[in-house]
């Protein structure tokens, strides 16, 4: 395992190898190397299976962190490859030629996070959010509750009471002053 970490570090500048559990690890690479790293992992390192791809909005540091989850079925272990992209201009190389389902994930990330994968088939088509006009919905700064409150009416007749304030009102109203 550490050999792979060394190999990835030497070839692609990968860093931060972390064993999450005995059959799962993660490693970090520069986004610009992602296609090369994935091709290497698929063809040379035994990680032939792409479980899924997704992104995490690390809004605090202005980055989307991509997660590519691979599995080596023969060695029975998984590897999550991370790559940060600039949140202001999120563009990543497409890996749709490496795996037949990757384009769907890339289309999803384009719609949900606004991350672009130039060259990926149908990447600009709507995926699940038909007719959606808001910002990419999985971004942390899209407040789904505020959106919902603004878009839909509350059912009338709903009112609740905070026990502590209710008791203050009933039992010692003078303290409210």
């Amino acid at each position: 395992m550490n050999e792979l970490a060394k190999e990835l570090a030497g070839r692609y500048g990968a860093r931060g190898w972390h064993d999450i559990r005995k059959d799962l690890a993660s490693v970090e690479v520069d986004a610009i190397r992602i296609r090369d790293v994935m091709a290497y992992l698929r063809d040379e390192a035994g990680y032939g299976h792409l479980s899924f791809m997704t992104a995490i909005d690390n809004i605090e540091r202005g980055a989307f962190t991509l997660s590519y989850a691979l599995r080596d079925h023969d060695a029975r272990r998984g590897l999550i490859v991370h790559a940060d992209v600039d949140r202001a201009e999120p563009t990543v190389d497409s890996i749709h030629l490496l795996w037949g389902q990757a384009w769907t994930y890339q289309r999803e990330m384009r719609e949900w996070f606004g991350i672009d994968f130039p060259g990926s088939p149908r990447v600009d088509e709507e995926f699940v959010l038909e007719g959606w006009e808001g910002p990419p919905m999985m971004r942390r700064d899209f407040d789904s509750l505020a959106y919902s409150d603004a878009t839909y009416a509350e059912r009338p007749g709903r009112v609740t009471h905070d026990p502590a304030s209710h008791m203050r009102e009933k039992l010692y109203p003078e303290a409210a002053q």
């Binding site: 999450i20 799962l24 993660s26 479980s51 997660s67 989850a69 999550i80």
Partner: peptide, 10 residues
């Protein structure tokens, strides 16, 4: 609260 980290369980 759960300590910071990530995992994938299948």
């Amino acid at each position: 609260r759960i300590p910071a980290g990530e995992t994938y369980v299948s």
